[in-house]
Design a protein around this nucleic acid. Sequence first.
DNA 1: AAATTCTCCTGAAGGC
DNA 2: TGCCTTCAGGAGAATT
Length: 270
Amino acid sequence: MPELPEVETTLRGIKPHVAGQCLRGAVVRVQKLRWPVPPNLSELVAGQTVDDITRRGKYLLLHLTGQTLMLHLGMSGSLRIVPDEIPVGKHDHVDLLLDGKRLRLTDPRKFGAVLLLDHDPYASPLLAGLGVEPLSAELTGDGLRSRARGRFVAIKNFIMDQKVVVGVGNIYASEALFRSGINPLRACNSLDSKEWNRLVGDIRHVLTEAIAAGGTTLQDFTGSDGRPGYFRQELRVYGREGEPCSRCGAAIVQEKIGQRSSFFCPDCQK
DNA sequence: AAATTCTCCTGAAGGC
DNA sequence: TGCCTTCAGGAGAATT
């Protein structure tokens, strides 16, 4: 499930192949992703240079000459650089054509997105309301504490809210809360300053470690080179229900919080 | 306004 | 072996 580390891994993998390249066109095989892919995408992007490629939250932004191509991997998407002659798979929905190779979006569950934005992409509705980048200095305990004031939503849902902080998904939310010793069901306004500071540090820490490991591969996530991510073995609670807590030995429990399965230690997460 | 539920999609896994 | 059900999840939309 691409969260920030998986998107960042993808960005770093494809950037050397894409930045500075001229787009020759695109192949759209499946239009029906989260939003319709522009059917005439090919003619719209042909001839434009990819000046830069950046990430905002879980979105990838290809800054073209006059527009911005916005990509989202949804929950099963991956981007890979492939040679022109490679066979097309069932879930290979969109190719961006470069010289002699292509950037291919593969997404079995079709929750991803390929959108072309005019003007300032950061003013678009999808990006304008996004929260702070967790790996930047914008993320502070005090900042989160003030955002949580007057709210009662579970802390796990709060840190997964992209309007609060971007990039933290279901896996890393559970992992960060475990490392902080905070029960995911706690109301977000019940954390004290010390807990907020600790949580901010652990969010940063777990995301940074995951990026260093190339992300987490659960089912079919691969980096742009086709290799899986190796952070899965570092997960301390996610997917480990019934296993002993690495800190206190109690059995890890699984519980749904806001429709999402969550994992935590009932003894040492207070 | 905030919180909760619904929805999209398909492959994997479990039940009988 | 095979069909059916359930689950997984990012996040906008709809609902409470």
